[in-house]
Computed example of a mutant assay.
Amino acid sequence: MTATVAGRRAVVTGAAGGIGAALAAELLERGASVVLADLAPTVAATAAGLGDGAHAWTGDVSSVAGVGELIAFADDRLGEVDMYFANAGIIGPAMLGETDADWDAIIDVNMRAHIRAAQALVPRWQKAGSGYFVATASAAGLLTQIGSAAYSVTKHASVGFAEWLAMTYRDDGIRASVVCPMGVNTNLHDAAGADDGAAQQAVTSAGAVLEPAEVAAIVLDAVEAEQFLILPHPEVLEMYRMKGSDYDRWLRGMSRYQARLNDH
């Protein structure tokens, strides 16, 4: 099966920079039209720099109202949206966090935003017989992130939700994929390092730090092949297999590794 990108009408969230902006650029290169969405007003300049076929929307994609406004905007500019990249994400609090507000914020952005977008789009995609939902998660959604419980939990949830979409609506012509990268050269990656040096060291020592454009090309190649699990860093698959083969050994090893990182 193939899902060509040419002619598709796509929304990309978290698109002011980083992976989101790179995805928008690659979508346009492959013949799609795109709405770039972000809370940061700089998304307008990013879209303008991509030329015809790119439109900017500024707002909160984690709220029900925001998702509704975004989709209405995209429908108006592009025609009915048939591809949605839930790419917006935040790092959240270190360790266990200190308040419910810490957790509420990251759950809304990293998880509920995906649910709310799917609730708005899936019913009409069922009627149309097609649609594609792509979630940006993280290798932390498969392997767990040293340092942040909230980031790890929400990224696991993102993987699980995309998996549920993929198997539940496949016979309706709807496809879903999830992207699980390690280090990518973005502001989010830099912020993670500033907040938790051990977590940053764990990511950079495990594999190469890729450029957003590299990730975007890998993602869209996989989407066009209708591949569910997209791993820009192939070594994540081997680690995931190791984890699954002996979970207790994995946990003991990660605990020792975390202790070594914290000692430096």
Rank of each mutant, 00 (worst) to 15 (best):
A198L: 02
G183F: 07
L220F: 11
I218P: 02
L188Q: 12
S205A: 09
V219A: 07
H189Y: 14
D171N: 11
I230S: 06
V223Q: 04
A198T: 03
V179R: 05
E226D: 14
L220K: 00
L210Q: 06
I174Y: 00
P212F: 01
R175M: 11
V184F: 08
P232V: 08
N185S: 15
E238A: 15
V203H: 01
I174G: 00
V179F: 01
L231I: 01
A208C: 10
E214T: 08
E211S: 09
T204P: 07
H189E: 14
S177F: 02
L237Y: 09
A202G: 07
A208G: 03
G207T: 02
C180T: 06
A213W: 10
V223T: 03
L231D: 07
V236Q: 03
G173K: 06
D221E: 05
E235G: 10
H189K: 13
V179K: 01
F228Y: 07
V209H: 09
D172V: 09
P234V: 05
A222D: 08
M182H: 13
A225C: 05
T204V: 13
A202L: 11
P232A: 08
G173S: 07
S205Q: 12
G183N: 08
L231N: 02
P181S: 08
G173I: 00
A222W: 04
A208E: 13
L188I: 15
E224M: 07
